[in-house]
Nucleic acid binder design. Sequence first.
DNA 1: TAACATTGTTAGGCTTCCCTTACTAAATCT
DNA 2: AGATTTAGTAAGGGAAGCCTAACAATGTTA
Lengths: 133, 133
Amino acid sequence: MLTTGLEDYLELIYKAILNNKNLKAIDIANEFNISRSSVSEALIRLADLDLVIYEGRKGIKITEKGIIEAEKILNKHNILLKFFNQVLKIDYQTANKNACKIEHVIDDCVLEKIKNFSEFCIESNLVKGESGD
Amino acid sequence: MLTTGLEDYLELIYKAILNNKNLKAIDIANEFNISRSSVSEALIRLADLDLVIYEGRKGIKITEKGIIEAEKILNKHNILLKFFNQVLKIDYQTANKNACKIEHVIDDCVLEKIKNFSEFCIESNLVKGESGD
DNA sequence: TAACATTGTTAGGCTTCCCTTACTAAATCT
DNA sequence: AGATTTAGTAAGGGAAGCCTAACAATGTTA
C-alpha cells in the first residue's frame, strides 16, 4: 500500500504523461511545496517499487504497474471530484483539494456508492444548474 | 492543528467521558492497536497541548479546550456517519470506519454541504427504508 | 566562451509515530 | 502477607517524510 505522498506524486506524474507534458522533479516539488531533495527521495522510492523509471534529468517514465496504480487513484479522485463539484456544488478548487485528500483514505465500496449516487442525482435532474464554478 | 492520531485518541477519551466510562491508557492501546508506551507518549503530548489532564493510573481527564476540540471532531464524524449510513446505505461498521478516516482531512465547508444534503435527502424521503447494516 | 541560473544529488538533521525490552508500581488472588 | 498479574513508564531504536546546505552537472545568455 502506497503512502499518501507517493500516491500524490504518482498521480501527478501520470496526469502529466497523459497530457504529453514533460514533467520534471522540480515540478513535483513546486506542486506540493516540498523541497527538490524530498522529490529525489520520493522518486527513488517510486522507482524501487517499480512504479516509475527515473533517470534524473532524462525524465520520469511510468511503468505498466505504475499506470495501473495511478489509474486507480485518478479514478477515485474523479468520482469524488464529480460528487463534490456537480452534486454538492462545491467550487472546483475546494472540490479538487478535498478529493485529493480523501482519495487516499476512502474504501472502494464507499466510493462505489458515491459514484452510483452521483450518477443517480445527475441523471434524475435532482441536482441542476451551475456546478460550483 | 492536531495530527490524525491525536484526534482519534482525544475523540475516544471524550466519548468515554460522555458515557461515564473510566477510560484507561491501555484501552486506547487496545482500541487502536498500538503499544502502551505509544499511548503514554500520546497522552503526554495531549497534556502538553492542554487538551487533557493525565495523571497515570489516576485516570484521564479532559480540559475545556479538549472538550471543544473533541466536539468538533465528533461532530464531523457524525455528519459523515449519517451520510454514509442513512443516505448511502452503507453498513454501520464500514460507514463508521470511513468516517473515522475522512473526518481528519475534510474541510468544514464540504462537511457543511454534506450535512445539508443529507438532511435534504432524508427529509424529502429521497432515501428511505433500512439504513445499511 | 565565461558567467550565471536551473536542476538534481548528497549528506546530515529533525520530528512524528510507532516499536521492543526492561523496570516500577499498583491491584488482585490465594 | 506474599506471589502473580496488570498497567504504566523509561530508554533506546527505526522508518517515513520532511528540511537545509553544499555541491555537481547541465542550460542559457551576454
